[in-house]
Design a protein around this nucleic acid. Structure first.
Lengths: 189, 189
DNA sequence: TCATTATGAACGGACATTCATTCACCTGAG
DNA sequence: CTCAGGTGAATGAATGTCCGTTCATAATGA
């Protein structure tokens, strides 16, 4: 607790190794043995901190999502008008992910997988994405298209996620245009 | 005995079973035994027609993609202006997938998976999406944003794919708005 | 010392793949 | 028309590998 040096956060190493390996090889291609090796830890260590592979996967997902929320929340000016808040959020999410594409690739695979269905249930029970949702709500809600919130997120932020998946960097002018298009996609006419 | 005409297309049954099971349970959750059972054939039958599970998965993907191209191609009026051709294509793709969400869910998972990387190589070698690409090219190309073709597809048609994943039907007015937003997303300002 | 965490060999089950055998259907000789 | 023989498809039990998980034991540190 005192010295920062001796304390190695092994659970964090394990989560990070999982995210990287899933990004590289998919869920089918990443074994717990490989995760442990990448994390520099013994096979059994992951099971000291996580009940099962699924448990670890969900924990890693939640960590990535929390990081995303934090990056988003710190970028928002609460007093800005909705379109501007959306732009701030969008950029923050894109840059957070693009600075570390492994997270983006992990997210894409997780959200396409049946893990997402399970995690979604827990999620709704525990209030969906408190930070991001709060940032969108209230005055913004009146402007939004009448679709399930899930689809609003997909249309609004899905492209940020998927663009961050690629290594190629994108010019700011093009990004600007894409952000505006995303905003138009989720906005009433 | 019946006429020889009654022959069942077992490879097609196997591909279809794979698509359904992957849509329901993901790649991790679908075994070849389960695929065979769903298809109503023996375990070994799949291996008469496909070298491996990967081979089957890729074959199923290509079939779904061909179906998509066909649906798109038959919906296009070659003489219509680009924006209108895009709209026709978008609707055709959306309706083709929404009429059978298993295909959409399979595609989403396939394209997020490491299978996609392999399949992509074969794809580029064998000319990328001949029908769709041709529909977009020429007079349309000049209007498009300067991004890799892959991203143009993602921005332009990704929402159609992901919307088709849900069971909830969407009002035409909303769809119309989304199509226009997709067009704006891939179009120069 | 005691409690907590780490270790990695070992276990059991699941899964992709194989293969010896059976089946369905055709061919053409009788 | 019949039927022996040939061909490829179909079968499903068997095989070997991989992988998630466990656990007896060791290290760590308070």
């Amino acid at each position: 607790m005192r010295s920062a040096k001796t304390a190695v956060d092994r659970p964090a190493l394990v989560r990070r190794a999982l995210v990287e390996l899933v990004a590289e090889n998919g869920f089918r291609g990443t074994s717990m043995a490989a995760v442990a090796e990448r994390a520099g830890v013994a096979t059994g260590t992951a099971y000291v901190h996580y009940e099962s592979k699924d448990d670890l996967v969900v924990a890693a997902y939640q960590e990535v999502k929390r990081g995303l929320s934090a990056a988003g929340a710190s970028a928002i000016t609460p007093t800005a008008p909705p379109a501007e808040r959306f732009r701030q959020l969008w950029y923050a999410i894109y840059e957070h992910l693009a600075s570390d594409p492994a997270r983006a690739r992990f997210l894409v695979q997780f959200e396409a997988s049946p893990y997402a269905a399970e995690a979604h249930a827990d999620y709704l029970a525990a209030e969906d994405d408190p930070l991001l949702e709060a940032a969108l709500k209230e005055d913004m809600a009146a402007l939004l298209v009448d679709l399930p919130l899930e689809m609003v997120f997909e249309l609004g932020f899905g492209p940020a996620l998927r663009l961050a998946t690629a290594d190629a960097s994108i010019e700011d002018a093009v990004l600007d245009q894409i952000v505006r298009s995303c905003w138009r996609a989720i906005t009433r006419e």
